[in-house]
Design a protein around this nucleic acid. Structure first.
Lengths: 335, 335
DNA sequence: ATGAAAGCGCTAACAG
DNA sequence: CTGTTAGCGCTTTCAT
């Protein structure tokens, strides 16, 4: 079918190794041979077989990326950053999505190790309880976690300032005069969601506002649960003057839902989110949120992984700076 | 490092070929051997080396996906669909983004052929003029185009009903009493953008509304050009009572921009988009748009490609049904 | 039911 | 500067 270095060698009556060296600019090959080889390679439409190179060199120049969902603002942006850095470094990326499921995550990691990827970037699924499937492969291939990190594994992790971002945002709501702040949280077993919850709690306690359990509602990062939640709060007569959601999709739905009930945002109820999704700039009023820089997280995670691949550098934990973005959904004029 | 079939064979004092056959459930191996092999494989933590298998079988069970941008609602959704179908069929996907650039597209395709992917799903970049880089590899590996298709290449293509969707949407605007309809178009060398423009034009002519060249403005699928465009239209006193944008991001910006100028949507100016992006449901008023089903396009494209890989089926051109979604940004009450 | 041997395409000692 | 040889891990005839 397609030409190999043997074919080139035969036509030129030289040895395959010389062809290989010429093609890879190895030292000690005459200019003449190099040009002859290149010309013949072109003529025969030669394409290097990376599979063979990888097998021989025990190095695939390929990294695996495992995420819960590919489409989804955060991961799509992160993957974009990952691809960029990887491509620039000569690596390809194999992507797998797990639908947040443990079994699928397991299979994806299996498949990637079989493919002999040089490293793996992993964001674990929210329904993943165990870590044995990760432990099972962490001696064989460098793994870097991003966003959905897991502390108990001694693995490098790159994430956002979830705690500080939530803390600052809650503080902002408090500073603008709000006291009864509802928090729509994410799943309990997702560390970032719990970190955001912690930030919210800390800000409250720092400002001597008692934490009220019934003001925290787990909406599972699922925006379709928001309207029912708001409906319940209002019908039960729960008093609140602000709402901080663990992600923007939930916050945006909250704004829409609150407006349906005649509540003014931010006068009656200030709303804030997390993530700086595109929708946050479109909703009316525009949403105050935290930019956790998904693309940057992907970029840095990849850089850490590539380092780890090259030199077996030690485990690192990187926190990418998050920035508060104050818009009209919270009373930032008062601040 | 990691165990191979040779290691298993040695420990069991049998031959590597037997181990291979046992591991792959080939006929003619005794139950006893099979179970012994499996136990030993487990014990040695054996992982099949897909690189070696691929090299040997000349089949990588891997498909390449090339898109202009990974993050971007349409492509992220499409890729999600692609990954799903591919994974279910036992294929992995290597993803590359081209930033709409011809040189990068070329390199990506090169890299993928080197990696001996079994097939390629390609959506060409808007700044890609030539097709020689595609021609160069289309004999070596099955290629299926999606979304950004190219007619002059005899390749399978899967796309949306761009023409019909635009036609129906324009017709809808006309039916609701609008006559002076601005069209914010996409790049001239992107076929889908031109198909949408054609649909717009056809609807006008079908309803005896003269086509006005100055009402079509190329915004290059770039929403940041929209506000300046609207500003210009208004300051120049151009009269229009509706606006149809070639994608939702542009349409949403148009709504925001028009509202800034005190125009009522849809009473003064009706607005419609294309794509059914998440923002279309968030903007106020909600945007009338065309759902072109990105995930479904990805799914079908992958199915076609897998067929092509397996049996060299003929070239097909699939059009995925698009649906009109009428919301408040256009006067659908009148319809 | 199993083994021996060849080879996928490539690179890397080693030798000259 | 170039060739010879061996082998990465696996599958697949062809034997037996």
């Amino acid at each position: 079918m397609s030409a190999t270095i043997k074919d080139i060698a035969k036509r030129l009556r030289i040895s395959p190794s010389t062809v290989s060296r010429a093609l890879n600019n190895k030292p000690g090959i005459s200019k003449k041979t190099i040009s002859a080889v290149n010309i013949m390679a072109n003529k025969l439409n030669y394409k290097r077989n990376s599979l063979a190179v990888s097998l021989r060199q025990d190095k695939s120049f390929c990294i695996g990326v495992v995420v819960p969902w590919i489409s989804n603002y955060f991961f799509a942006e992160a993957i974009s950053g990952i691809e960029h850095v990887a491509f620039c470094a000569g690596y390809q990326i194999i992507i797998a999505q797990t639908n947040d499921d443990e079994e699928e995550e397991k299979r994806a990691l299996q498949a990637l190790t079989s493919s002999r990827v040089d490293g793996i970037l992993l964001s674990t699924g929210s329904k993943v309880k165990g870590v044995s499937h990760i432990r099972a492969i962490q001696k064989e291939v460098p793994i870097v976690l991003f966003d959905r990190t897991i502390k108990r594994l001694k693995l490098s992790g790159i994430g956002a300032e979830d705690y500080r971002g939530a803390y600052e945002m809650t503080k902002h709501l408090i500073k603008s005069g709000k006291r009864k702040i509802v928090h729509l949280s994410g799943p309990k077993n997702v560390e970032i969601a719990m970190n955001r919850l912690s930030g919210y709690k800390s800000a409250l306690s720092k400002h001597k506002i008692p934490f009220k359990r019934h003001l925290v509602i787990d909406c599972d990062f699922n925006e379709s649960l928001v309207h029912p939640t708001i409906t319940k709060l209002i019908s039960e007569g729960v008093e609140f003057d602000a709402l901080f959601a663990s992600n923007d999709d939930m916050a945006v739905q909250a704004i829409i839902s609150l407006k349906k009930y005649g509540k003014k945002v931010p006068e009656d109820i200030a709303v804030a989110g997390f993530g700086n999704y595109p929708v946050s700039k479109i909703v009316n009023p525009q949403l105050s949120t935290v930019n956790h820089q998904p693309k940057e997280i992907g970029i840095q995670a990849t850089k850490v992984l590539l380092n780890q691949i090259d030199q077996l550098t030690p485990v690192v934990n990187l926190i990418i700076k998050s920035e508060l973005i104050l818009r009209d959904s919270s009373c930032n004029s008062v601040d």
